[in-house]
């Protein structure tokens, strides 16, 4: 059945038709981490409310503490990528950086820098937790 929005107009090929490339991965990554950030801010917000108005008294410890810091870590990684890629979007809005090779290189670099920051945050967190 033809979807309602199609109405005989041309459609662009969807995900499974495209060969993966950096800017496409960056675009999908931006959206996925955006949703992740939505969940992260929501969890932090709810926890702050519970911590200040009752329901929770302290920062979790033990198994729950591991889960707490893991969620916070994943949120930090997600928001790091979204923030760095967001800067790229702001630069794009100024009309600069659209050359395909340059756009791919910048997108790949942002993935790389995010990964380095993610590893650094993990090492710093484990050091503070006294794992090493």
């Amino acid at each position: 059945m033809t979807p309602d929005w199609y109405r005989g107009r041309p459609m662009s090929p969807h995900l499974q038709v495209w060969r993966w490339h950096w800017t496409m991965a960056a675009s999908i990554g931006h959206r996925v981490t955006g949703v992740g950030n939505f969940l992260g801010v929501t969890l932090i917000g709810i926890w702050i409310v519970a911590l200040t108005l009752g329901g929770a008294q302290a920062v979790p410890t033990g198994a729950l503490g591991v889960l707490f810091w893991l969620v916070l870590y994943l949120f930090a990684v997600s928001i790091t990528y979204h923030l760095l890629n967001g800067v790229r979007h702001l630069v794009w809005d100024s009309g600069r950086g659209f050359d395909p090779d340059q756009a791919s290189a910048v997108s790949a670099t942002i993935f790389g820098v995010s990964a380095i920051i993610a590893v650094a945050l993990l090492v710093a967190g484990l050091l503070v937790a006294g794992v090493f």
Binding site: I44, L51, A56, Q57, A58, V59, L72, A76, I79, L83, G86, V87, H89, L90, D93, V128
Partner: peptide, 29 residues
């Protein structure tokens, strides 16, 4: 875009403080 510019500063500011205070305990936070 305007909120993105604000968050460019606010996210690191809030998150670093939040994590450091949470690490120090609920009362510090």
């Amino acid at each position: 875009k305007a909120s993105a510019l604000a968050l460019l500063v606010l996210v690191p500011l809030f998150l670093v403080s939040f994590v450091l205070k949470a690490e120090a305990g609920a009362d510090a936070l």
